[in-house]
């Protein structure tokens, strides 16, 4: 039994991939068997086990401090996924509440929220995130907060446009005429129609959040240095691409797979849930 939403092969592959990554993150201690923070200064920059000079104890080799790459990638998935889920959800809540208000109420509310989004979007997201991180300081919580504060506009813009279309439909006016309160009207006549769009956006946003976290960690403004993050691993690996390529390849591949899972799921859902998500609004 596959839910209808996952009938599209893309959505299905995306969901399975995402589930596998989540399982890997969850069971990281059992899969890795090595502490990702254990340093071995005698066995630094080991190549992967299947390459010449590899150590079978370190399947994907070790980094410049002799820490196990595989273990770090697996534990890094925990960081990436918590950012993906919490930040995407947070951005959705903030963005969609404002979008419902703007789209349904119209008038001044819409104007103020619209202008706020415009001001927000006059910064490239990377720059805004950097400035926010400068203000907030490093750390997982702040990374999540920064992503929410940057990306809520994405939800707000797309959803507001949708809400405006739905709010113009006659059944919304009819609900008001039969006596529904504003809250009842939004809950019964508007929100249900936007759920497919929200789910699709949420899934795409999860991928964006993973990238954002990796970028911030890459420039050293992401999580604290004792937390394991893929972006940081990539930044650390750049000086030793030759000796230990898996230092770079493993986290790169991990980012790609996670983002691809989110995008495949989102693209598939867009089809199965029949969301008319205009690309220029996404």
């Amino acid at each position: 039994m596959i839910p209808r939403a996952l009938r599209d092969p893309r959505a299905f592959i995306g969901a399975v991939l995402f589930a596998l990554i989540a399982l890997a993150a969850l069971f990281a201690p059992w899969i890795a068997r090595v502490d990702p923070q254990d340093q071995d200064l005698l066995g630094t920059l080991l190549p992967a086990a299947f390459q010449a000079g590899g150590d079978p104890a370190h399947l994907l080799g070790t980094d410049a401090l002799g820490r196990d790459v595989l273990a770090r990638v697996l534990y890094g998935a925990r960081t990436a996924l918590s950012v993906a889920l919490i930040a995407a959800f947070g951005a959705m809540v903030l963005g969609s509440v404002l979008a419902y208000a703007a789209g349904y109420l119209g008038g001044w509310t819409d104007w103020v929220i619209g202008r706020t989004v415009e001001i927000w979007m006059s910064f490239p997201p990377v720059i805004l995130a950097l400035i926010l991180m400068t203000g907030l300081g490093t750390g997982l919580r702040n990374v999540i907060l920064a992503i929410i504060l940057v990306d809520w506009t994405r939800f707000c813009r797309v959803l507001r446009a949708e809400v405006v279309v739905i709010a113009r439909r006659d059944h919304v006016a009819a609900a008001r005429l039969t006596g529904f309160s504003h809250l009842q009207t939004v809950r019964r006549e508007i929100i249900p129609a936007t759920i497919p769009l929200l789910i699709t956006l949420l899934s795409l946003e999860a991928g964006i959040a993973v990238i954002a976290e990796a970028i911030l960690s890459f420039v050293g403004l992401g999580v604290k240095s004792d937390q394991i993050a893929w972006g940081q691993m990539i930044a650390d690996s750049r000086d030793a691409i030759y000796q230990a390529p898996w230092n770079l390849l493993a986290p790169t591949l991990a980012i790609f797979l996670t983002v691809a899972a989110a995008n495949l799921l989102g693209d598939g859902l867009r089809r199965t849930l029949d969301v008319r998500l205009r690309e220029d609004r996404a």
Binding site: G207, A214, T252, I255, F256, A260, N263, L264
Partner: peptide, 18 residues
């Protein structure tokens, strides 16, 4: 194209250097 979209600019940059 979906897979292409899953590669952010800094991964392309690293890949090209590589």
């Amino acid at each position: 194209t979906t897979l292409m979209m899953s590669v952010p600019e800094f991964l392309w940059a690293l890949l090209f250097i590589f």
